[in-house]
Nucleic acid binder design. Structure first.
Length: 360
DNA sequence: TCTGGGGTCCTAGGACCC
DNA sequence: TCTGGGGTCCTAGGACCC
């Protein structure tokens, strides 16, 4: 796929917190912090999202709630309300579908649109993006940031470039100069670990990275990743915008009231999670073939035990039974206290979304 | 100041098959 | 004494993302 495409990335601004501001207008202008409480009592848990007022105090996603409270005790702390966010997300995706034939929802608050067939050039694309932003503001009452570029990789970086309520266009001839000064972690797919290794090699910016040979990158990061890094650093990305086929896995994970090695506590928790997972499977009319037990030890290391069944299953009983066996095996193998336990099913069959026939 | 919960994608080694 | 090559599936773990 040559890069003569026009790709739009839409990213909602501080989504969860903005949803709460919409529902509770009295919150506007105050620092708002959306929290995931662990259930261990008090302020145990982590920050999921915060609005820009809260970010001024250093309150950002991932930090402990207790720390956020020290940074600003007067901020408004709210628990996540996923149902609300999901329904608002659905409304936003509907609007995007009205403007673009191909919409790939990337997460609850982000999507790519391939608007190549909708506009003649990047100037028209910019006008269309402005219309989309208006439509979302008018109909949903939220602001977002948009990025337009010849591919997904650059469009995503562009949407993040000016926030909130931004609109950034990167034309094909501007891609290299746009990327050059940015940090390597601005490339989606380059995280903390990869950045550390790059920094050790004296590579800090995407421009630095593009000067490494493919051979150097491959010998350091392996064939697939190295080759991808060379391309990405030059702003080359040919992955198509595609409707997602449906989810690949469904899981539930929870923090235990206290760290434990007690098999009974773990099995009781697994029973509860099995029920929740099978409920989700039922909604989506899916059968699974593999079950994974997830144990996170007190040192925050993740361990898994999984099993693939000979034939697809869909009932809560099977999940419960297999998960129980896996949990027992796990306890024998890792005689370590657990902080969190989880369950995941995958290898789905059943109501896969239908093929789109319109194109043929 | 103690650290949530939901995902996707990739890798490496071993089993197994032709 | 030396002993192919390719493919797929499964398990466990890791990096990364929101």
């Amino acid at each position: 796929m040559p890069d003569n495409r026009i790709i739009l990335h839409v990213d909602m601004d501080y989504f969860f917190a903005q949803c709460e501001e919409r529902e509770h207008p009295e919150l506007k202008g105050k620092p708002v912090v959306i929290c995931v409480y662990s259930g261990r009592g008090g302020d145990s848990g982590a920050v999921s999202t915060s609005n820009y007022e809260a970010r001024k105090f250093g309150i950002k996603a991932g930090i402990p709630i207790s720390r956020a409270k020290k940074l600003n005790p007067d901020a408004v702390f709210l628990p996540v309300n996923m149902e609300l966010y999901r329904s608002i997300s659905d409304d936003i995706m509907e609007i995007l579908r009205g403007f673009s034939d191909i919409v790939e929802q990337e997460s609850i608050d982000e999507a790519f649109c391939d608007i190549t067939g909708k506009v003649a050039d990047f100037d028209e694309a910019k006008k269309l993006a402005a219309q989309i932003k208006d439509a979302i503001r008018q109909n949903v009452g939220l602001t977002c940031s948009a990025g337009i570029a010849p591919n997904k990789l650059v469009a995503k970086i562009a949407s993040d470039f000016q926030k909130p309520d931004g609109l950034t266009v990167v034309k094909p001839e501007e891609v290299r100069t746009f990327l050059e000064p940015l940090k390597v972690t601005d490339l989606i797919g380059v995280g903390k670990k990869t950045a550390e290794r790059l920094n050790e090699l004296g590579i800090n910016t995407i421009g630095d990275m593009s000067k490494l040979s493919i051979g150097e990158l491959v010998s350091e990061f392996g064939q697939a990743k190295g080759a991808w890094m060379k391309q990405a650093s030059q702003g080359i990305d040919t992955t198509p915008v595609q409707e997602r086929e449906g989810t690949e896995q469904i899981g539930r994970i929870t923090t235990l009231k206290e760290d434990t090695k007690d098999l009974k506590v773990i099995l009781d928790t697994i029973d509860r999670l099995s029920g929740e997972v099978s409920g989700k499977l039922k909604e989506r009319k899916l059968s699974f073939r593999s079950v994974t037990f997830i144990g996170i030890s007190t040192d925050f290391k993740t361990h898994t035990k999984s099993r693939t069944l000979g034939a697809p299953a869909k009932d809560a009983g099977t999940i419960k039974r297999v998960a129980n066996e896996l949990a027992r095996d796990f306890i024998v193998q890792y005689p370590t206290a657990l902080r969190r336990v989880g369950l995941r099913v995958a290898n789905f069959s059943g109501e896969k979304s239908q093929m789109t026939l319109g194109e043929f």
